[in-house]
Each structure stands twice: as structure tokens, then as C-alpha cells.
Amino acid sequence: MNNSRKIDHILVAISGASGSLYGLRLLEELHRAGFRLTVTASTSGQIVCREETGLDLSENPQAATERLCRQLGLEGGVSVVAPDDLFVGAASGSAAPGAMVVVPCSMGTLARIAGGISGNLIERAADVMLKERRPLLLVPRETPLSQIHLENMLRITRCGACVLPAMPAFYHRPESISDLIDFVVGKILDQLGIVHDLYSRWGE
């Protein structure tokens, strides 16, 4: 990935894998760091997010934005866009965000991105990231992994994306689920070059 470009706008996408909390926690940290954020969730991602967190992102974008900001305590700089809206800037290389994170990333979404299929905004925006050589992070949460999953992850990595599985470590002695979530979110921030203190590093 080419990280030389200054990043001030990040697209965070939530797909239908379990682990919506990772995406919401990432939004909190990115907002705190001062980034402009565009958020989208696939249809299945909206369903899973609602089941896991109680947050409904399925209404019109303005209502979804207000609900997201209220639940996370965010003020300004955040906009939710519909998963089928291909007229937003993220769908075009001429107005693409500086980076994109799909968290969590379902294996179906990963496979379609790896295959160059752009059936919704998440897949199209990911395709834009790859062709524009901008940071694209995919955070799958699946186990066990089939040969198809592994081959797709290898393929998308060779295309320039970063595959960062939601695999929390334990050397920092986590005491809560929040500690485990923060470890994965911290790893995402590391890849984006964002300073944080979400977990203690090895040897600290």
C-alpha cells in the first residue's frame, strides 16, 4: 500500500460478519483523532450490527447518521451513506477517501472484492482503493478458514490490500471484552499510521 498520501478522510464499512463492535470502536478512535469519516454498512451488515449492538443503520442516511453519532457520542465530521449509493465520492477515484477499512469483513465481501465485483458501495469503494493504490484494510472475522477463504485472502493481499484478521492477543493481559476489541482496533490504527495507546506493546 502507498501510505505517502496524507490521510484526512477515511471510509469505514461494516459488512455482514459478526464483530460490528470492532467497527464502532474504530469509529470512536478515528473521530477522536480528527478524521473525517464516511460510514456505510451492507444490508446484512445492518442486520448483524442491529442484533449485536442495538444500533440501526438501515433508515435514511441522515437518520442513521444521527443515531450513530448519538450512540457513540460523536459530534460532526461523520456521515452515513447507503450501501447502494454509487454517487458518493467514495465510489470514484476522483473523490475517493484517503483510506478504507472494512470491519468486520465477511468472507463473501472479501471474495467479491478479490474478484473485482462491484455490486454495492463497499465493493466499488474497495475497487477504487486498489486501483488508486490507497490503503485498504480488510478485517475478517471467521473461523475455521476454508481453502477458498485463504486463496481469496492471498489474492487480495497480492493486489495491495492488508488482510488483518480480528485475532486479539493476550500478552497484554486483557481484563475485559473491551480490552480484546481495543487490541484489534489498535492494530488497525497501526496500519494506518495513527498513534494510539489502546494496548501495551510487547515488552512494555
Rank of each mutant, 00 (worst) to 15 (best):
61 P>C: 12
61 P>K: 14
61 P>V: 08
62 Q>M: 14
63 A>W: 05
63 A>D: 11
63 A>H: 09
63 A>T: 15
64 A>H: 09
65 T>F: 07
66 E>A: 13
67 R>L: 11
68 L>P: 11
70 R>E: 09
72 L>K: 10
73 G>F: 02
74 L>W: 08
74 L>M: 13
75 E>H: 14
76 G>V: 12
78 V>F: 13
78 V>N: 14
80 V>A: 13
81 V>F: 10
81 V>W: 10
82 A>R: 14
84 D>K: 13
85 D>V: 06
85 D>E: 11
86 L>S: 13
87 F>H: 15
88 V>N: 09
89 G>R: 09
90 A>T: 12
91 A>K: 07
91 A>Q: 05
94 S>R: 08
94 S>M: 07
94 S>Y: 02
98 G>W: 01
98 G>C: 08
99 A>I: 04
101 V>E: 11
101 V>D: 08
103 V>M: 06
103 V>N: 03
104 P>I: 04
105 C>G: 03
108 G>Q: 09
109 T>E: 03
109 T>M: 12
110 L>G: 04
110 L>D: 08
111 A>V: 07
111 A>G: 07
111 A>F: 05
111 A>R: 00
112 R>W: 00
113 I>R: 00
117 I>T: 04
121 L>W: 01
122 I>C: 05
122 I>R: 02
122 I>E: 02
122 I>T: 08
123 E>G: 07
124 R>S: 02
124 R>L: 04
125 A>P: 06
125 A>W: 01
126 A>M: 05
126 A>F: 02
127 D>P: 05
128 V>D: 04
129 M>H: 04
129 M>Y: 10
130 L>V: 07
133 R>S: 05
133 R>L: 06
135 P>D: 11
135 P>E: 13
135 P>R: 00
136 L>A: 10
138 L>N: 11
138 L>I: 07
139 V>T: 03
139 V>C: 12
140 P>Q: 02
140 P>N: 06
142 E>I: 00
142 E>Y: 02
145 L>P: 01
145 L>E: 02
145 L>S: 06
146 S>E: 00
148 I>Q: 01
149 H>Y: 01
149 H>Q: 03
151 E>A: 08
151 E>N: 04
151 E>G: 04
152 N>G: 00
153 M>D: 02
154 L>Y: 00
154 L>T: 01
155 R>G: 03
157 T>R: 06
157 T>S: 13
157 T>G: 14
158 R>E: 15
158 R>T: 12
159 C>H: 14
160 G>K: 00
162 C>Q: 12
163 V>F: 13
164 L>I: 15
164 L>C: 14
165 P>V: 08
167 M>A: 14
168 P>R: 11
169 A>I: 09
172 H>Y: 15
172 H>A: 11
173 R>N: 15
174 P>R: 11
174 P>T: 14
175 E>V: 15
176 S>D: 13
177 I>H: 13
177 I>S: 15
